[in-house]
Amino acid sequence: MLSPEKLARINELAKKKKTVGLTLEEAKEQTSLRKEYLETFRSNMKKTIENVTVIDPEGNDITPDKVKRLRSNKFPN
Results as ranks from 00 to 15, higher is better:
V54L: 11
A8S: 12
D61F: 03
R69W: 05
T19E: 09
T40S: 14
E39P: 01
E29L: 12
L24S: 12
M45A: 15
I10H: 03
T63M: 04
V54R: 01
F41H: 14
K16H: 02
L24N: 10
R34T: 03
A27L: 11
P57Y: 06
I10T: 00
N60Q: 05
S43A: 15
I62Q: 15
L33P: 00
A14K: 03
A27Y: 06
K46L: 14
V67H: 01
M1Q: 11
T19P: 01
K28P: 01
R9F: 11
A14L: 04
E50S: 04
L24P: 07
P57E: 09
P64H: 09
A27E: 13
K47D: 12
D65K: 08
K68D: 05
E39R: 08
S32I: 02
S3K: 13
Y37E: 09
S72Q: 15
R42M: 15
P76N: 13
V52H: 07
V52S: 04
T19Y: 03
P76S: 10
T31F: 03
V54N: 05
E26G: 07
G21Q: 04
K18E: 09
S3Q: 11
K74T: 08
I49D: 07
N51A: 15
T48N: 10
L70F: 11
K35Q: 03
T40W: 07
N77Y: 14
E36L: 07
R42E: 15
L70T: 01
K15S: 02
Q30F: 05
V67S: 02
F75K: 10
D61M: 06
E39V: 06
I55T: 06
A8C: 05
A27S: 12
R9K: 15
N51H: 08
T63R: 02
K6N: 08
R71K: 14
K15C: 01
V67D: 05
V20W: 04
E58L: 07
S72I: 14
T63G: 06
D65V: 03
D56S: 05
D65Y: 04
D65A: 07
P57L: 09
S3T: 12
T53C: 09
S3W: 09
Y37G: 02
T53R: 12
I10D: 02
E29Q: 13
N51P: 00
K6Q: 11
P76T: 03
T31M: 07
E39T: 09
L70Q: 14
N51Y: 04
R71M: 01
A8M: 08
T19G: 00
S3R: 12
N11M: 10
S3V: 06
G59W: 00
E36H: 02
S3L: 12
S43Q: 15
L22A: 02
T19V: 07
L70R: 13
A14V: 03
V54K: 06
P4R: 08
K18Y: 06
R9N: 06
M45D: 11
L33N: 00
E36T: 05
Q30I: 00
S72R: 15
T48L: 13
M45I: 15
K35S: 04
K17S: 10
N51C: 03
L38G: 03
K74C: 02
L24D: 13
E39W: 00
T40M: 11
S32T: 05
V67M: 04
Y37Q: 08
M45Y: 15
A27Q: 12
M1R: 11
E5W: 09
E25R: 10
E50K: 06
S3I: 10
V54F: 08
E25Y: 01
K47N: 14
G59K: 08
P4T: 05
V52Q: 12
